[in-house]
């Protein structure tokens, strides 16, 4: 049978998916053991037990100085910044995207400036944000918004422009006005697109969050990683990186499931076209 026609059964597919993870883990353990055999104080590839200890200390023991559980405190601060930033971006994307996509006058007015702003490298204006908004929460949230909103706005506007013009005409023949078009035709069809855009923006949002926390913060996942870097504390950094990855993965999964649940018509339509 040709390779292109060979399909794994469901259990086989799951098993295959685990193989690379297991290989990575084994590679790590063997390399870590080799280095530790040579020098028991090696910091670069700490053993699994060292990492478990670190997690135990950070996640399940009160910090002696603050009386808090550091991992959970960092997680809460980071997630708060991330979610506020993404929520603001999503709101902006819907509002501006719908206006850009449906109103030719607004498109002429605001299209060029949105296109220009989306070309500004967000990290380059981070110092400006710190100067203008101070070192507090606001500047970190604003960085996430600036980093994710322009792309989402342009995506939403393009999705509106891609809708068949027939629908716009149709709504007018049903007696609808511009507001009706935005509310009953454009908005509901954009919502599943918005969830998809959010999923794609997660990576960028995490990037800007960690960058902002690394530079100016007193807590957060990014802050912790960059703090312990000075002591070469790989036993803390690696679990933190894995934890961030797990969080991002489940946010992505959650958005996907939410979309399937809320917009069955959308996914059925997509399957029909595929």
């Amino acid at each position: 049978m040709r390779l292109i026609n060979l399909r794994p059964s469901r259990p086989l597919a799951v098993a295959l998916g685990f193989i690379p993870f297991i290989i990575l883990l084994l590679l790590y353990i063997s390399n870590s053991n080799a280095r530790l055999a040579e020098n028991p104080n090696d910091k670069l590839l700490p053993g699994l037990t060292t990492m478990v200890d670190a997690v135990q200390r950070l996640a399940f023991t009160e910090d002696t100085r603050t009386g808090e559980y550091l991992l959970w405190m960092d997680t809460a601060s980071s997630l708060e910044r991330l979610l506020i930033g993404l929520a603001v971006s999503a709101g902006l994307a819907l509002l501006v995207g719908i206006l850009l996509g449906t109103l030719p006058m607004f498109r002429a007015l605001a299209g060029p400036v949105v296109a220009a702003i989306s070309m500004v490298p967000p990290m380059a204006i981070l110092p400006i944000l710190f100067i203008v908004f101070g070192l507090g929460e606001l500047s970190k949230v604003v960085l996430i918004v600036i980093g994710t909103a322009p792309v989402m706005i342009r995506d939403m506007a393009q999705r509106v422009l891609d809708m068949p013009r027939e629908q716009f005409i149709k709504l007018q023949t049903l007696g609808g006005n511009s507001w009706h078009l935005m509310l009953r035709v454009v908005l509901p069809q954009l919502l599943p697109r918005l969830l998809a855009a959010l999923r794609l923006s997660l990576g960028a949002a995490w990037l800007f969050l960690i960058a902002a926390e690394a530079i100016a913060s007193t807590d957060g996942l990014g802050y912790r990683i960059f703090l312990v870097r000075r002591y070469l504390a790989m036993d803390v950094i690696l679990p933190y990186v894995i934890w961030i990855t797990v969080l991002a993965y489940f946010m992505d999964l959650g958005l996907r499931l939410l979309s399937r649940r809320m917009f069955p018509w959308f996914h059925r339509q997509q399957e029909g076209e595929a």
Partner: peptide, 15 residues
């Protein structure tokens, strides 16, 4: 609303 229309495609709203 005094002039209704049916196109070859895309006349109905998918959502």
């Amino acid at each position: 609303p005094d002039r209704g229309v049916v196109f070859q495609r895309y006349s109905v709203l998918p959502h």
